[in-house]
């Protein structure tokens, strides 16, 4: 497998919203290399071709609930754990344009 560069780890960190400094990026890059080297073994499984990927350990389908309204949480409970709240809403720092 290809070696993981610091730039690649930086890109992953951005996707995962982790503000990592250079030393952390370097350390993670080398650790990721080692780990990926170990897990790359999975590519050797030759009889995996055509096998259905297994997402669930339970053979269940169509688990649904009826469309019935259930009591929501009291708003005080909802906001109790918030780092900041204002006017019954969660308060967050300014949002950069186009984060979506």
């Amino acid at each position: 497998m290809a070696e993981i560069t610091r730039a690649e780890v930086a890109h992953l960190a951005r996707l995962a919203r982790l503000a990592l400094d250079d030393s952390e990026l370097d350390r993670l890059a080398s650790q990721l290399d080692v780990i990926l080297g170990a897990v790359a073994k999975i590519g050797e499984v030759s009889d995996a071709e055509g096998v259905t990927p297994m997402t669930h350990a339970v053979p269940l389908e169509n688990v649904m609930r009826p469309d019935v309204v259930v009591t929501s949480l009291p708003r005080d409970d909802v906001l109790a754990g918030a780092p900041a709240a204002e006017d019954g809403r969660f308060r967050v720092p300014r949002i950069l344009d186009d984060e979506t």
């Binding site: 993981i4 690649e8 780890v9 992953l12 960190a13 951005r14 996707l15 995962a16 919203r17 982790l18 503000a19 990592l20 952390e24 993670l28 650790q31 990721l32 780990i35 990926l36 967050v92 720092p93 300014r94 949002i95 950069l96 984060e99």
Partner: peptide, 27 residues
């Protein structure tokens, strides 16, 4: 910005092993 605060929070709030696995999983 929120993005910066979020990233700082997650970088400081998660330990090394958790960050390692998040990066691995994201990859």
């Amino acid at each position: 910005s929120l993005e910066e605060v979020m990233s700082l929070t997650r970088a400081q709030g998660f330990g090394a092993e958790v960050k390692r696995r998040i990066i691995l999983g994201t990859y």
